[in-house]
Simulated assay, not measured.
Amino acid sequence: MCGRFSVTLPNDAMAQLFAAQPANALPRVPNFNVCPTNAVHVVRSGETGRQLLPMRWGFLPHWYKTENGGPLLINARAETLAEKPAFRAACRDRRCLLVATGFYEWTKDAEGNRMPWYIHRRDGAPIAFAGIWQNWGKDDPNPTCAVVTTAANLTLSAIHHRMPLILEPDDWPLWLGEAGKGAAALMVPGNEEVLAFHRVARDVNSNRASGAQLIEPLPA
């Protein structure tokens, strides 16, 4: 799954990387502790090309009467994405990319304490999570999104059984619907050599924590 992540790439660099037109009110960066319900950086494709814009992380199906009208849907399983009533229309017509630098996962020690790990690309490049989006609300629609997840590859299975679906640049056009159909073929665990991870301090267990020290490796 994906429950917390970081994003440190400047907004103008994001727009250039994804060849997207940036919105005026993008979330502030760097943010080393992006939490559910925060505004996140999302790339989507439209009639005028790609857009980089903010969305609420927490997908809201149209039948939710309030933002708390049901479970908090920050993740969507790739295996059932096309079948779940909440996600199937978005899977077909509203796919997007969420921009990140790295993400966190947790294991537990013998006493049951939550031990955080920071996961990032070995090459230091930004990460593009596969996502889906949905406008929610009638009078003033609020764009919302979820990260698509898949079974963990062997690299990450040591710390968790799920992981975000990470897409390489060559796959972005297909996921965004710019290169025809066939995006379902992308919904598999990523290359074993792409990601690395290290233990970080438990400060990040708090959703109020901030700062670059959150991603620093613990001393050996």
Rank of each mutant, 00 (worst) to 15 (best):
residue 142 N to G: 04
residue 177 G to F: 09
residue 89 A to E: 13
residue 83 E to P: 09
residue 152 A to I: 03
residue 157 S to V: 14
residue 104 Y to L: 10
residue 175 W to R: 05
residue 174 L to W: 10
residue 154 L to H: 12
residue 68 N to I: 12
residue 171 D to E: 14
residue 180 G to Q: 11
residue 85 P to M: 09
residue 87 F to W: 11
residue 66 T to I: 15
residue 62 H to S: 15
residue 172 W to I: 02
residue 115 M to S: 08
residue 58 G to T: 11
residue 55 M to V: 09
residue 109 D to V: 14
residue 98 L to F: 02
residue 64 Y to I: 08
residue 58 G to E: 10
residue 108 K to L: 14
residue 46 G to P: 05
residue 98 L to T: 02
residue 116 P to W: 08
residue 80 T to P: 05
residue 146 A to H: 01
residue 123 D to G: 12
residue 87 F to K: 04
residue 74 I to P: 00
residue 142 N to D: 15
residue 87 F to R: 04
residue 146 A to Q: 01
residue 78 A to N: 02
residue 95 R to T: 03
residue 88 R to V: 04
residue 175 W to D: 04
residue 177 G to Q: 07
residue 120 H to L: 14
residue 80 T to A: 08
residue 78 A to T: 07
residue 59 F to K: 06
residue 150 T to C: 12
residue 143 P to F: 07
residue 52 L to K: 09
residue 123 D to V: 13
residue 166 I to K: 00
residue 54 P to K: 05
residue 75 N to G: 01
residue 93 D to M: 08
residue 104 Y to T: 05
residue 77 R to A: 06
residue 149 T to M: 01
residue 56 R to V: 12
residue 106 W to C: 12
residue 95 R to Y: 01
residue 77 R to Y: 06
residue 52 L to N: 09
residue 49 G to I: 11
residue 171 D to T: 11
residue 107 T to G: 11
residue 96 C to F: 10
residue 162 R to E: 13
residue 105 E to A: 11
